[in-house]
Nucleic acid binder design. Sequence first.
DNA 1: GGGCGCGCTGG
DNA 2: CCAGCGCGCCC
Length: 330
Amino acid sequence: MPQYWWVNHKQTVRQEIGGGYLWSPKQENNGARSQFYENMRIANPGDVVLSFANTWIRHVGVVEAHCVTAPKPGHFGASGAYWAQDGWWLPIRWTPLSQPVRPRDLADELAPLLPRKHSPFNAIRGTGNQKAYLARVERAVIETILGRAGLALEAVQAGENRSFEQLVEALDDEAERAITQDLTIAETERLEQVKARRGQGRFRANVSVMEKACRITGISNPDLLTASHIKPWRSCTTGTERLDGNNGLMLVPHIDRLFDRGLISFQDDGRILVSPLLAFADVQRLGLTSALEESVGLFTSGQAVYLKYHREFVFLREDRPEARVRFKAP
DNA sequence: GGGCGCGCTGG
DNA sequence: CCAGCGCGCCC
């Protein structure tokens, strides 16, 4: 069953509609959790989203794939200058409404359908709710809005979504262009940084020195392992970060993706943490259950330490204390 | 299209 | 309580 969402995004509506995505920070600037940002991770492919901006709903979208960690889009410009550099990126296939809808005109109909908390819209005042970004709504809200727009929900859902791999490729292509166009970096160095995107070259060599097997599955055959970034390659801001073996794990490829989505991660005591968003069936299918049982004590002094922070994980090494991030209990 | 006040959320 | 943040409104 799909879920239904409503996004308030006046500040970035042009970029997000034009680019076919939603982007949000992972937490508020003071580190506080935001349900509206967490919803970016809860959204599934096939979910339906209403786009609200400047008092109008002008687009409806279908979520194309799960969110991934990604840097703040460069073309946001001055909008959201205070947002963190890294956030959640959720690909959306948008459809414009030939008859845009002003929810204020439907306030009486919407009032009983909207949630009491985390509502994107105040039906009494007839205004969008400040603070709300991606908000969960009932199917009936979508049907009411689309009914007024003269558009069937089925027509919106019909159509091909791009695959997760295609979308992530396109996202990474952007980061790669930035590197290849940066002529302040020597050409050989640019090449190595680009190779690191695929877990190849000097990056792989650096990681393999310290990581001899996949820490989740225990697989040690190098042919089956990908050199994966802990801080994703597309989010790295320096060549050092892109090539640093400290910023890597040898993982089997589908585990690599789970890291990218923040669904599995290491705690600083070495335990593997599985996000509640990952279904238990997935955990079993991946063969993670035994790893979970035996996961305590994977790390010894001097090895990489992983910290849980609002269900997102950053890494640090004891030999790089300047990069230390304070542990915050969930 | 950018700045300011307002009201909801979370700490 | 206060801080943060995105809307409505204003220009």
